[in-house]
Design a protein around this nucleic acid. Sequence first.
DNA 1: GTAAAGGTTGCAAACAGTTGCATCTTGGAC
DNA 2: GTCCAAGATGCAACTGTTTGCAACCTTTAC
Lengths: 139, 139
Amino acid sequence: MEPRRQAENIIRSSGHHLTPQRLFILEVLEASDGHISAEEIHSRVRPHYPSLHISTIYRTLEMLKELGLATETDLGDGKLRYHLHEKGYHHHLICEKCGKVEELDEAILAPLKAALLRKHRFRADMRHLAIFGRCQGCL
Amino acid sequence: MEPRRQAENIIRSSGHHLTPQRLFILEVLEASDGHISAEEIHSRVRPHYPSLHISTIYRTLEMLKELGLATETDLGDGKLRYHLHEKGYHHHLICEKCGKVEELDEAILAPLKAALLRKHRFRADMRHLAIFGRCQGCL
DNA sequence: GTAAAGGTTGCAAACAGTTGCATCTTGGAC
DNA sequence: GTCCAAGATGCAACTGTTTGCAACCTTTAC
């Protein structure tokens, strides 16, 4: 089933309003393949909805984060990126030298999550982890 | 030996100038016990050096990061914190609900670092890791 | 349908942090 | 000590993001 429909239900049933602005933002998020910034969302929505303010986008993204529908990632270039995570979580390895971004499967973090829970009784919510360092070519 | 002296030598020998501004900033960083924001550094330096501009503080912190002398941490409250890390690295567990910050020893990350190097040939530089989630009381 | 309650929007202003640039300072060579 | 090149500073302008607030819209109850 369409993930946007799912998202709409979750927004409604959590007591939030389903506004046209939010529908446009969800549409852009769903249509975008990768990670998209607030400003990119804005420029894609503007043709269809010129008065939609960038602060509404930030507030919608904040709400989607809180509902567990979207993930925020800091790729280290000064702006945050967002994506709906219908397709499961993943993480990023970012090379501090050449800027290359590699995707990282969630599984590799499982032992760390388990250790944090066992030793610190802390349930880590690692949906947006960015790990900086040096890639193979820049070691 | 005093860590500030060490830092001064590293700054000099890396081709950077040792300016009074930088000495004041180092002094504040050394005197501060925990994690301090750029604005806090500014207000502590201002009495002694009113013209020292906040952008100089940001640029000094950037240099200290690059030289491996200071660490930047995002504790999730909208401003970045800094500390000299003469005392070894450590990380943070931050509760998304109550905001509690717990320190985390570096050792717990060793298996993850090893796995990243082995499977991705990526040398992770995890000096500033903040892990968000729920603490024991807020599970 | 209408009304009320509460959530949401657009706007402007604020905030943390960064950047371009002219001026000044530091460290090194002499 | 003087001179010079490279680096650093202060300032103002800018970027990305957040926030306070009045006006507005969505939802639920009737």
